[in-house]
Amino acid sequence: MNRFLAMETLRKWVPLLVLAGLCLFFTAMNPHFLTLRNFARIAISSSPALMVAIGVMFVILMGSIDLSMEGTVAVCAVLFALTLNALGGSIAGRGWVAIPVALFAGAVMGAVNGLVHVRLRIPSFMASLSLGFIGIGLSLLITGGDRILIDDPLFRSLLTVRVGGFPLMMYAALACLLVAWFIQDHTTTGRNFYAVGGGEELARASGLNVGRLRIIGFVLAGIFYALGAIFAVARLGIAETETGRNFMFMSITSVVVGGTALRGGEGGVWNTLIGVLIVNVIGNGMVVIGLADYFQDGVLGLLVITAVWLSTDRRSLSFVK
């Protein structure tokens, strides 16, 4: 029994140990890995991914899944850039309106997603996947396949201005992370996500309005996707349909690697932070140690499987199919 408890405690720390192990490994292979400048680079690539991963994490906590992030990010990024450019091209002027516009667009996409899932009783997997398609199509329709450039130096200062060696973007992302943590640990909504994930029947029997909660979860996810979109635009200065690309794989992998259970009810923002860092450290580290590119996909896959294997409790996974 004691050994069991010890394993249990250890398992909680596995993602962090994996992250530390990876950092040690890459540093041993190439000492340049362990430099402030490189960590800043990892921080830049992690910031948008972290927002999207936190968004989908809320949905996964409830035991649902959201696959609409690529579409939602594309729509939010494009709307953000269009609004910004239409209102003078600088967030110093009226252009700041672009930020609430993007967040609102994300929330609307999330609400539609949640309503379709809950009211029409379509599995979240299908509902969100389809909504993702619609989002991609919508952003294509808006842009006609073009790229929208953002040249506002103030907005791009998220990337270019550094404090303590790290870009402003990272501090903004950390602030959003704290907000997410507060929602998760200190609000009714956050608590209820865990309850729904831990047992939907129980949540219902405790008098919770599960349908409404699910919709709230998707809305929240949508807002975080929009944040991810804004950071992604800040990072590249380009908004286009392709801005959403790869976020599905990246975010869900990060959530799972961080130790949040896909069946719901377990995990949280800190797990997600670690997961995002693991995935991005792997991505950065493989280039830094000069691994041949035809190996990289395979190695990424292996590392992800290993991380999931180490960090999940297989006693309760009998239902995995």
Binding site: Y194, G198, L202, A203, E266
Partner: peptide, 8 residues
């Protein structure tokens, strides 16, 4: 199923 949320 309906009484206790395990994990909480």
């Amino acid at each position: 199923i309906e009484g206790i949320a395990s994990g909480m």
